[in-house]
Amino acid sequence: MSYRRRASPLHAARAAAAVCWCTALALATILAGNPLVLASLGAGVLLAGALAGVWRALRQALLLAAVMALTICVINALVTRQGLTVIWRFGDLPLLGQINVTLEATVYGALLGMRAATLLLLGALYSACVDPDAVLALFGRFSFRSALSASIATRMLPLLARDSRRLADAQRTRPGAAVGRVALLRASTAGVLDRALDVAATLEVRGYALAGARRRSGAGPLSRHDLAFSASAVVVLTCSGLGAVLGWAPFSAYPQLRMAAGLRVAALSLLLVLAALAPFADRRGVSP
């Protein structure tokens, strides 16, 4: 997944506003305890991806997110011994002892999985919509070198993945017995070090050593999209915070499932989704 400037309000917003919006959605996802609210947030992220024109990137992440959510759900159901409603008895298993799968553990596992999946999708949305160079400039004000290291490490990942594929292809074309894994690991490590040296040399000749002299650049005027996503972040964060503190959407899994599914929960879910997606309604000045 890599960033590419597209004609969307989220791409048009400055990095600071986009980062705040993504962070607000991530915090709302972490705070949301009710499966309905969480499901709404997940759907909101997917819709945001579609409105930002990065549906393809999110679709790829969705598969991974689904596998991850299912894995978390199954593991939680198998290892948690809480809950009163037994839905499956495995009996005594060697090493693991008696395994009873309860409805409560399964639902709570699904909730955990859904939360992890939503966060993963949000990460994918961030990668596809927020300019890493702008983020570097944003965080570079505080620690340029750390931000640059993080930025280069992110950029190097696909490059190193390509190098690894190349090495693997070379070994596939090698006749005779397969090369040992240790030798391959050593060669792969040497390749990574070579790449790192090359990049380090490039940084040197581009004056990275002088980076301490960087000036703090002016931020420029706020665009309508900067304002919209900042406002959206504030609303999302406030609503989810209030919802958590005031218990607008209570949910408890153990010992028995107790979940509110009334008007208040629906209103909170709808409010969060609308607040998150509202900035996408204004498409003026979104072209790169």
Binding site: S2, D133, R155, L159, V199, T202, A213, R215
Partner: peptide, 28 residues
């Protein structure tokens, strides 16, 4: 250098060109 892939450190062409200048602390 020889290998173009190892010489690009930023995500976009504009940021790549600006990198050396920003390192020098030039005004925006």
């Amino acid at each position: 250098f020889q290998d173009p892939e190892s010489q690009i450190v930023m995500g976009t062409v504009r940021a790549e060109l600006a990198f050396a200048l920003e390192n020098r602390g030039l005004p925006r």
